[in-house]
C-alpha cells in the first residue's frame, strides 16, 4: 500500500520536502513521519501539521495536493516512486539518481537539476533551468530521463551532459545552452538561440526557430540512430517517436566553441 500524504492547509512557508524519500522513510512509523520537520524558516512545521497521513509502504509516496511552495520534491530520490497530485516548487527531482517521480501540475525552476538517473515526468509546465546545474556546479543533468508534457522556461537543458530530456510543449530562449552531451528533444516552439555554446550532444527540434550563424548546415541525415531512438521513446511520447521517424536535417555547432554538437530539424 502506498503512503499517502493529503495536504490539509496551504503551506504557511516554503517547504523542504527532500526529506520525504522512500529510502529515508523505509523504517519509519506514521508517528515518526508525522514528526519530520519540513520548515525552511525558524517557524517549525512538521509533516503532521500539513498532511493527513495514510500509512503504507514508503516505496511509493503519494502527495494528494501540491503547492508552488513544495520545494525539493523527490530531491535525491534513489529508488521507489513519488507522485504529486498538484504543483511543486523549485528543485523538483534535483540530483535524483533513480526511481520514478511524477508531478501532475506545474513546477518551479531547476526541476531535474543535475539528476543522474531515474525518470522524472512533469505533466504541467516547468520554470527556467530545467535539468540545469545549480550555482557552482559544472554539470547539469547527467543521466536518466526527464519528460515535460508542458512548456519549459529559459535555458532548459543547460549544461546537459548525459541522459534524455523530452519537452512536449514549447521551450524558452537559449534552450540547451552550454550543452556538453546528451539528448534534448522539443516538440513545440523554441525561443531564440537554441544550443547556444553547445559543445557536443544532440538537440532535436520539431519547430525550429532561425538558428544562430554559428551552426552549419550538414544536409540530409542518414543513420539508423533516429529510428532506434524513436523506438525507445515510443512508450513515452508518440509525438517524439513521429518526429524521429521523419527525415531529418543536421546542423552542427556551436562553432563558437567545440562545434561537435548537432541540431536536428525536420528535413
Amino acid at each position: 500500500m502506498t503512503l499517502v500524504l493529503t495536504l490539509k492547509v496551504t503551506p504557511p512557508q516554503r517547504l523542504d520536502l527532500s526529506v520525504l524519500l522512500p529510502h529515508l522513510l523505509a523504517d519509519k512509523s506514521s508517528k515518526d513521519v508525522a514528526a519530520i520537520d519540513l520548515a525552511t524558516t525558524r517557524e517549525k512545521i512538521t509533516v503532521g501539521d500539513l498532511f493527513r497521513i495514510r500509512a503504507g509502504s514508503a516505496e511509493e509516496i503519494r502527495f494528494e495536493g501540491g503547492s508552488e511552495r513544495f520545494d525539493g520534491v523527490g530531491q535525491g530520490l534513489q529508488q521507489g516512486r513519488i507522485f504529486v497530485a498538484g504543483d511543486a516548487g523549485i528543485n523538483a527531482g534535483r540530483q535524483m539518481t533513480g526511481g520514478d517521480l511524477v508531478i501532475s501540475g506545474n513546477v518551479g525552476p531547476y526541476a531535474g537539476s543535475a539528476m543522474t538517473g531515474g525518470r522524472l515526468e512533469i505533466l504541467g509546465n516547468a520554470g527556467d533551468f530545467l535539468g540545469a546545474p545549480r550555482e557552482g556546479e559544472l554539470n547539469g543533468m547527467s543521466g536518466g530521463l526527464l519528460v515535460l508534457r508542458g512548456a519549459a522556461g529559459r535555458r532548459a537543458g543547460d549544461r546537459l551532459r548525459r541522459g534524455t530530456i523530452l519537452i512536449e510543449g514549447d521551450a524558452g530562449d537559449w534552450l540547451g545552452s552550454r550543452l556538453i552531451a546528451g539528448t534534448l528533444i522539443v516538440l513545440g516552439r523554441v525561443g531564440v538561440s537554441p544550443g547556444y555554446l553547445m559543445r557536443r550532444g544532440t538537440i532535436v527540434l520539431a519547430k525550429p526557430p532561425a538558428l544562430a550563424s554559428t551552426f552549419v548546415d550538414c544536409g540530409q541525415f542518414a543513420s539508423s540512430f533516429p529510428a532506434v531512438f524513436g523506438r525507445f521513446l515510443l512508450p513515452e511520447s508518440r509525438g517524439a517517436a513521429r518526429l524521429f521517424r521523419a527525415p531529418l536535417r543536421k546542423f552542427a555547432g556551436d562553432m563558437a566553441v567545440l562545434g561537435k554538437g548537432e541540431i536536428f530539424v525536420p528535413a
Binding site: L145, R162, G163, T164, T202, S223, F225, F232
Partner: peptide
C-alpha cells in the same frame, strides 16, 4: 558520438 538510452549504449 556516444548515445545512451536506459541501459543501452551505442556509438555513432
Amino acid at each position: 558520438i556516444s548515445k545512451k538510452f536506459g541501459n543501452r549504449h551505442f556509438w555513432r
